[in-house]
């Protein structure tokens, strides 16, 4: 291939990397907060699902009603739905002290089922897939060659990388709330004895996490696709669970993990078109395989939060 083709290929891969990584960044940072508080929220897949659906349904209806800010309204509604799912997870795992694996999987099943059922209710069985005009892409580098093309991205992508990640890092490590979250996830007895309200802190971390996961889901329906389909999340929530362990519960490392997944994903899309004699499912599986591999290598001896999976009860 000559140079121009290579360049186009590279630009395409880089731009797609950022795009694919965006929902993973939102959701895995949400999961980082939840797990740092000591709760493994396996409801992430269902929360992303519900976020994608609620965001899309609200946006579609608002758009039909002629409301100009329909996408933002959809995003807000998705966040609210994410918070509700997180509160349900909190009720089960924090207040009632139910096994977190079971309650998380229950929340995921509920989220997916609610979305599919809701989609039927709202949109019926039309032969045309309903859609909205999604968020547009823009580049902060304007029409510059190469960088302008790589950074032609959605606003939610910019927010994820430029605002969410640094703010999430700062709040976790430099704010009193973040200290409470880390303490509550590490040693809730200590936090309690120091006067921190363990339950409130865990609920707050869950709620923030739920909202971020839902944004991750809504990014797919409101920005990338402008539509909702049953295959929309496709296991991205589970990828985030792995990314968070890979990242050792650090927002910045989780972002790097998301970029790695995004890069492999973008690469395999293009590899499919190069005409290797392999079934396309093999390529599709590639990013997931890389995730498993990365987890197996970097996740060994991962320093799990001390109170991971443990409900807190005063003796």
């Amino acid at each position: 291939m000559d140079q121009a083709v290579w360049l186009t290929f590279l630009v395409g891969v880089l731009a797609a990397t950022l795009r694919v990584a965006t929902p993973l960044v939102w959701a895995s940072i949400g999961e980082v907060y939840t797990e740092r508080a000591g709760i493994l929220n396996l409801g992430i897949e269902g929360t992303m699902f519900l976020g994608a659906f609620v965001g899309f349904a609200v946006a579609a209806r608002a758009s039909d009603a002629g409301f100009g800010g329909y996408l933002w309204l959809g995003l807000l509604a998705a966040m609210a739905a994410g918070v509700l799912m997180a509160l349900l997870m909190g009720l089960l795992s924090v207040t009632l002290g139910v096994n977190q694996h079971v309650s998380g999987l229950g929340v995921t099943l509920l989220g997916i089922a609610l979305s599919l059922f809701g989609f039927r209710l709202v949109f019926g069985e039309s032969s045309v897939l309903p859609s909205v005009e999604p968020f547009g892409q823009f580049s902060i580098f304007g029409d510059l060659p190469i960088v302008g093309q790589v950074f032609k991205q959605y606003l939610l992508t910019y927010i994820a990388f430029l605002i969410l990640v640094p703010v999430a890092w700062w709040v976790l490590y430099r704010s009193s709330f973040g200290l409470n979250v880390r303490a509550v996830g590490e040693n809730p007895e200590a936090a309690d004895a120091a006067g921190v309200d363990v339950y409130r802190t865990r609920y707050a971390a869950l709620a923030i996490g739920g909202a971020l996961m839902a944004v991750g889901g809504a990014f797919l329906s409101l920005a990338q696709l402008g539509a909702f389909s049953p295959g929309i999340i496709a296991g991205r929530g589970w990828v985030c669970i792995a990314l968070v362990i890979f990242a050792r519960w650090d927002p910045v490392r989780a972002t790097l993990g998301a970029l790695l997944f995004g890069a492999v994903f973008a690469l395999q899309l293009r590899l499919q078109t190069l005409g290797f004699d392999l079934p396309f499912e093999a390529f599709l599986a590639l990013p997931y395989l890389v995730t498993i591999l990365a987890l197996a290598i970097a996740g060994r001896n991962a320093p799990y939060p001390g109170a991971y999976l443990k409900p807190y009860r005063r003796e």
């Binding site: 303490a183 936090a191 120091a194 921190v196 001390g306």
Partner: peptide, 15 residues
């Protein structure tokens, strides 16, 4: 009642 991965300062000011 200490969170082991945190620093002395963080443990002291917690809460």
């Amino acid at each position: 009642a200490l969170a082991a991965p945190l620093s002395v300062t963080e443990n002291v000011i917690l809460g």
